[in-house]
Design a binder for these strands. Sequence first.
DNA 1: AGCTTTACACCTAGGTGTCAAAAT
DNA 2: ATTTTGACACCTAGGTGTAAAGCT
Lengths: 256, 256
Amino acid sequence: QFVEKSSCAQPLGELTSLDTQGEFGRGGSSSPSSSSLCTEPLIPTTPIIPSEEMAKITCNLETKELWDKFHELGTEMIITKSGRRMFPTIRVSFSGVDPEAKYIVLMDIVPVDNKRYRYAYHRSSWLVAGKADPPLPARLYVHPDSPFTGEQLLKQMVSFEKVKLTNNELDQHGHIILNSMHKYQPRVHIIKKKDHTASLLNLKSEEFRTFIFPETVFTAVTAYQNQLITKLKIDSNPFAKGFRDSSRLTDIERKG
Amino acid sequence: QFVEKSSCAQPLGELTSLDTQGEFGRGGSSSPSSSSLCTEPLIPTTPIIPSEEMAKITCNLETKELWDKFHELGTEMIITKSGRRMFPTIRVSFSGVDPEAKYIVLMDIVPVDNKRYRYAYHRSSWLVAGKADPPLPARLYVHPDSPFTGEQLLKQMVSFEKVKLTNNELDQHGHIILNSMHKYQPRVHIIKKKDHTASLLNLKSEEFRTFIFPETVFTAVTAYQNQLITKLKIDSNPFAKGFRDSSRLTDIERKG
DNA sequence: AGCTTTACACCTAGGTGTCAAAAT
DNA sequence: ATTTTGACACCTAGGTGTAAAGCT
């Protein structure tokens, strides 16, 4: 089940062969120049087999049902200059962690392929529109409650509701920067802290594992393309309640 | 400037002899039974002189001007069953910390004396109404951004806006529990982390210092007593904007 | 009489998609 | 022709003091 793949703002390649809950280990980068694109090199260049202890960890996508509904239609995520939350939210639970250990949980989002897309309204489908735009600075979203104790991770869910997506390449807020009209795959990483001095930039003394959930693939957009996606967002996101049919009443209906 | 005082839900004694920015070290408790009152024993019973390194740390109350205005009138803080924020907020900045070290910053609130008070409306003044009610479980509010790096502390302010006060002795939310009609002194503590295993309950391997700001003394109340305090809250707390004179307009004034 | 509780209107703060305008 | 931006109405979520009611 251990699969080597490219990483760190490099395309993931095809994901169709993966199970519902796939996992990516640390794979060697194929391009010699790729390291210069990575301002925050999460992934070392030498492949590493996870330790027995880390191999026991499993990660479960709590919001799978909702993600599945979106995935069927082709999930889209709005990106804005000031940053936009993801909906659905990525919410995961872990098992197999050591209650006494400390862990850092983080997320990043990597391109699925080297393509740029456009939406054909008359066909209601996505088409390849050419090669991908130049890669953007890769950013990690370290979950703000990190570090977690293993005990916490076994009890609570980890929710990435606060992560924001932006198309502003000069963003100063630490939001994740994406290219519009490109396909992306969110990833969840867990790192076991071995000593308190180790940082994310210095992973030699750490162990980590990476989890991907193919049903969370999405296309970044600045405005929704597929109207069915818009409708599903409105019907399932509490903040969009004002656009639901049932609240779209005339004055007469309101009084009745 | 190092002063030994009682601690941990024990009365602080008179504070009038302290400077604007006082500091409390760890003092021996006078009452043999006091340790049983402390469910979270922050303060050991043996007095300790801070290390040279810790002695260099200073703590500044950023919101002093506003606190002074309230202090002149006699600050009151509402406590409710579900928990109420403090206003003004305690916001502090530190200097003299080691940029490379890690620190935990926390807050607690201790009784100022052994008295219960009542407010004489006709005289607009507070009167002693008897002996203090039985002490409540002492709670620590660890700042949620802890642990901080020294670098962070030198850059940012530390704001305790989210701390909540309650009169519910059975509170399950971790709010700070206070007796109504009693006088309290908030305190800010900073602890240097020496190793990652040390907890707040096991401070032997840690060093810490405690700062008090006498202008932040307040009386806990379930409803405001002094109308001047109510007015100052309304005029200075953004959430109370709806009660300001300028927004108390008649329909005619609103249209004009 | 003194103190506490509760529902409430009125805010802050910020997350939604919409739609027209602007940019490319 | 397509994509992006920004002001906007409409929400969620929750922090205010108020005033009447409840408690002791």
